[in-house]
C-alpha cells in the first residue's frame, strides 16, 4: 500500500494544500498576469513535492524548467496578448472538467490497489556497470533508453522551428541600466561554469544536460534583458542550436555504420560517447530555450 506516512506529516499536508490552492487561484484569477505568477508558485511547489518523493533529478528539472523558464515564456505571452482573463467557452470547460475527473478516479483506483514492484529498477541497477555512467537516472536517459532522449531533442528542435516559422512580431523588452548590465556581465561567466558543472555532475549524481542547458538559457535571458546582444556570430549561434540533434544522431549513425547498431555504444566507448552527447544537448538546449524566449534566432 502506498499509504506509508512519512515523518514530516505537517509539511506534506501543507505542501499538498498549498499546491491545490495555488492551482485553484491560477485558474480562477481575474487577471492573466496573476495567473502566471500563481503558475510559477505552483511549479515550485511541484518541485518541492518531487523533493519529498526522493526524486531530486526530477525536482531539478521541475524547478528550473517547469517553473522558471516557463514563467519567462508566460510573461512574454501574457504581455503580448489582448485577452484579460482566462475565460473559455462553457462547453470546453465542462469537457476539461470531465476528463480531469476521470483521470482523478483512475489515479485513486491505482493508488489503492498498486503494490511495489521492483523488476525494472533491479534490472537497471544490475546493468549499471555496463552503461558508462554511475547515476541510474542518466544511465536510463542516455544509454538504455537513449532513443527516447534523441526523439525528445528532436521534438524540442521542431517546436522551436514551428515557433520561428510563425513569424510573429516579437517585441524586445530591455532596460538600459548600468546596474543590471554589470550584474549580468558578472553573473554570466559564473552561470556558464555552473551549468557545465551541473551537466557533468549528471554522470554520477543529481544533474543532467537539460537542467544545465536551462540554467544557461536563464543566464542568456538575463544578459539580453540588460539590452546587450550576445557577442557571438550568427553562424555560431546556428551551430550551437542544432548541435544537440545533430551530434546525437550522428553518433547513433556512426555506431550503426561501424557495425554495433544504432545508438548502441560499445562498452569501452560508452562513457565518452555519453559525455559528448551531454555536452551537445547542453549547449543546444540553452540556445533553443533562449530562442523560444526571444523569438528570433
Amino acid at each position: 500500500m502506498l499509504w506509508q506516512t512519512g515523518k514530516k506529516d505537517m509539511l506534506d499536508l501543507a505542501l499538498g494544500l498549498m499546491l491545490f490552492i495555488s492551482a485553484l487561484l491560477s485558474l480562477h484569477s481575474k487577471d492573466t498576469m496573476k495567473s502566471g505568477v500563481f503558475f510559477i508558485i505552483f511549479g515550485f511547489l511541484s518541485g518541492l513535492i518531487w523533493v519529498r518523493l526522493e526524486a531530486p533529478d526530477v525536482a531539478l528539472v521541475e524547478i528550473i524548467l517547469g517553473s522558471a523558464i516557463t514563467g519567462l515564456l508566460i510573461f512574454k505571452l501574457v504581455k503580448g496578448s489582448k485577452q484579460k482573463d482566462l475565460k473559455a467557452f462553457t462547453f470546453t470547460r465542462l469537457w476539461a472538467g470531465f476528463i480531469s475527473f476521470l483521470i482523478l478516479i483512475f489515479m485513486l483506483f491505482h493508488l489503492t490497489t498498486i503494490e511495489r514492484q521492483d523488476r525494472i529498477a533491479s534490472l537497471v541497477f544490475e546493468n549499471l556497470h555496463k552503461s558508462g555512467v554511475d547515476s541510474a537516472v542518466n544511465a536510463v536517459l542516455l544509454n538504455f533508453r537513449g532513443y527516447d532522449t534523441l526523439l525528445e531533442v528532436g521534438v524540442i528542435t521542431l517546436a522551436i522551428f514551428g515557433l520561428l516559422s510563425l513569424g510573429l512580431k516579437r517585441e524586445a523588452y530591455y532596460w538600459d541600466n548600468p546596474l543590471l548590465k554589470g550584474f549580468s556581465r558578472l553573473s554570466l561567466p559564473f552561470i556558464v561554469f555552473f551549468s557545465l558543472y551541473i551537466t557533468y555532475l549528471g554522470t554520477f549524481s543529481v544533474g543532467g544536460a537539460f537542467q544545465g542547458g536551462a540554467l544557461l538559457a536563464g543566464g542568456l535571458v538575463l544578459f539580453a534583458l540588460a539590452g546587450q546582444a550576445l557577442p557571438l556570430k550568427a553562424s555560431i549561434i546556428y551551430i550551437f542550436t542544432m548541435a544537440g540533434l545533430g551530434v546525437f544522431s550522428l553518433i547513433g549513425l556512426l555506431y550503426a555504420l561501424l557495425g554495433y547498431g544504432f545508438l548502441t555504444y560499445p562498452l569501452e566507448l560508452s562513457t565518452i560517447s555519453i559525455m559528448i552527447i551531454e555536452l551537445s544537448i547542453w549547449i543546444s538546449t540553452a540556445f533553443l530555450l533562449y530562442t523560444a524566449y526571444s523569438g528570433k534566432l
Partner: peptide, 17 residues
C-alpha cells in the same frame, strides 16, 4: 552572495519601474 545581490537588484528594478 547571489541572493543578496539579486534581492537588491530586483528591489531596485521594481521600485524604479
Amino acid at each position: 552572495l547571489l541572493v543578496i545581490s539579486y534581492s537588491a537588484l530586483v528591489g531596485y528594478a521594481l521600485a524604479n519601474r
